[in-house]
Structures are given as structure tokens and as C-alpha cells.
Design a protein around this nucleic acid. Sequence first.
DNA 1: CTTGTTAGTAATTGGCCACTAACTTTGATG
DNA 2: CATCAAAGTTAGTGGCCAATTACTAACAAG
Lengths: 180, 180
Amino acid sequence: MTAEERRESVIRASMIEFAERGYNGTTTQSIADRVGVSQPYLFRLFPSKRALFEAAARRCMDDVREAFLSASEGLAGEEAREAMGIAYMDLINDRSRLMMQMQMYVSTAAAEAAGDSEVGRAVRAMWEELWDAVTERASMTPEQAKDFFSQGMLINALVAMGFPMESHLWQGFGFEGKGC
Amino acid sequence: MTAEERRESVIRASMIEFAERGYNGTTTQSIADRVGVSQPYLFRLFPSKRALFEAAARRCMDDVREAFLSASEGLAGEEAREAMGIAYMDLINDRSRLMMQMQMYVSTAAAEAAGDSEVGRAVRAMWEELWDAVTERASMTPEQAKDFFSQGMLINALVAMGFPMESHLWQGFGFEGKGC
DNA sequence: CTTGTTAGTAATTGGCCACTAACTTTGATG
DNA sequence: CATCAAAGTTAGTGGCCAATTACTAACAAG
């Protein structure tokens, strides 16, 4: 397997581990185990644990953005908005991508608290990119953008806390029987 | 200082530390330093680090719930809804409480991934309590409840990532010049 | 065959961190 | 003043974990 292919599978494994256990809760050993490779070898593919996290974060955001854009390909306005809403439901069933987003939020704050403003700038740039891509594609007003992303955030939180779809907290979404 | 008073200040300090750096990123030493007490003494006041986190989490949720309820005291319906919306803005200026909420979400997922379903059950119970208290006070429909908490979640995320109030991502909220 | 490169491992290290044990200080009360 | 408890400290310990070093195995090209 070439180094590039390995790096690819390391990023995938990192996302799964970091997503569930967070940056500090994840050991490089657990990532290596998941890839099926020795722990020190990770450090030949990536310079540090931090770099693993950043690669996983970037990949996560790229995936989400592409999911929205490809779901709304060729559409505009209200139609695009609807298509992207449905695309978000797929994300609900993808714990890793969803939880990785949450981890990015808290890690950003932690990094900034530790005096590292680099991470924060990178995360904000990625998020702004997502926000702008989505709002432009669907020609959203600021109000509509707020509603769209707001609902996404609540979904993230409810999923993170493990509320079952039957819980009454999910009622407002009207998901009943939509296969979530 | 009595043990009970100390416990109180330890909870406050724990909330500040855990909120910014997360469970695994926080050392008991840093909490002890903030309190102004030796690190081993924490373990006479609380059985474990986990217990510190749980106490901080519970306190955080109690505070938030009380903030909403006292802000809307004697009000109902639309008036209560508005009062609680304003109360949420105060929370924006209280990083610790806001970030502690985020930490609870990701920690719940991490605990559940580690096979501990106890934490998850406790967090869901606390959140349901908050949800029910708020929706009942303002007689919210499920749709209104979704909107209220959704916006709160987006606010949490934007604050966590450190987006300045001037960013266009905040536009939809109409916060301009509201002293946030 | 030998020279070099690329993919990988085994062994180790140095530092950190939750938690414990054993001891000291403070102050109220009979 | 003696005593007793409650508040607090100093000095470890054992385990974990990111990162380094030094090695091996496969293979391609001249």
C-alpha cells in the first residue's frame, strides 16, 4: 500500500475515533489499531496527533459541503433548500461526521483558550465556506440561513445526547416515519 | 471554610475549566489552582474527577433552567417566549455556562461509546427537564419549541467557534446593537 | 548482486496525571 | 489547657501516552 493510500485510511480512522472520543480522549494507538498498522508509523505519515485531527476535521467539512452541493445540483431557491434539508437527514445516520462537527466546535474553543488562534481561524474559514456555499446555492435570506443551520445544530445536539427518535423533543421536526 | 462552602467553589471552578478545555483536557490540578487549594484535597471533597464533571454539568443545567424561569416569572405565552429569548442573550456573554453545555453533549457521546449508559441517561433527563420547563412556561407548540432551542444551539456553536458579532453569519438573528 | 527506496515494526523514553497515604494545622469546647 | 475533629498539605505511585530511535523486509533498477 502506498503512503498516500495509507494516509487516506488513517484520515478515515482518525475521524471515527476523534468523532466519538474527542481530541484528548483519543489515543494514537486506537487510531493505529483501527487502521491495522503500528502506532509509531502514524508519525511517519503525519507530523503529530494535532495534524491527524486537523486532517480529519478538514475532510469532515469537505464531505458535508459536497453532500449539500451534490444533493442540490442543478437546483435553486426553494427546491435547493428542500434537497439540502433531506441531505441533512442522511447526516443524522452518519454519527462520525456529525460528532466530528461537534468536536470541532469544542476543540476550537479549547485551542483558543490555550492561546492558539490558528485552529480557530481555520475552523471559522471552513465553516464560512460551508455557510456561503449553502446559502448561495439556495439563495437564502439571512433569516432562512439562520433557520437552516439552527435546525442542523439542534439535530446535532439531540443526536449527540442520544435522544431516540421517539422522544417528544424530536416532535417539531416532523420526522415521523421518514426512516431516521 | 466549611467543606460545603469549598465544594461550592470547587464546582464553580470545575465548570470554568471543564467548559473551556473539556473533560479530558482539564487537569484536576488546574481546578485546584483556580480554587486555591491543593490538588489532592479535591479528592476528599469529591470521589473522582468524573464526579467533579457531573456536579459541574448538573449545576450548569440548573443555572440555565433557573435563568429562563426567573426571566419569565409571572409571564405566559408570547410574552414568556420573548423574555426567555432575551435571557438567552445573557447566556451568550457567559462563556462558561455556554461551553459547558457543549462539553456535555460531546461527553455524553464519549461516555456512551465507552459503554457507560449512566451519564447519557442523566444528561438526557436534565435536558428534558429544561425543555419541558421552558415549553410549558411559554405554552410552546412543538414547532415553536424546535425553533427556540434550535436558535440556541446555533448561537452556542457560533460562540464556540469564536465568530465575532460582526460576522455575516450572525445576520439572521438581528442582534445589531443589542449589546452582545 | 548490490544499491537505494519505500513500507513497516519493536523497543523505549520522558513526562504527565488521577489518585492515595500519611502527616500537620486550626479552632472550637468541656 | 487538653482533646478531638475537621480542614488542609507534602510526598509519592503506578499507569498511560505521544513521540523517537533504531531496526527489518520487500522490491525495483542498473
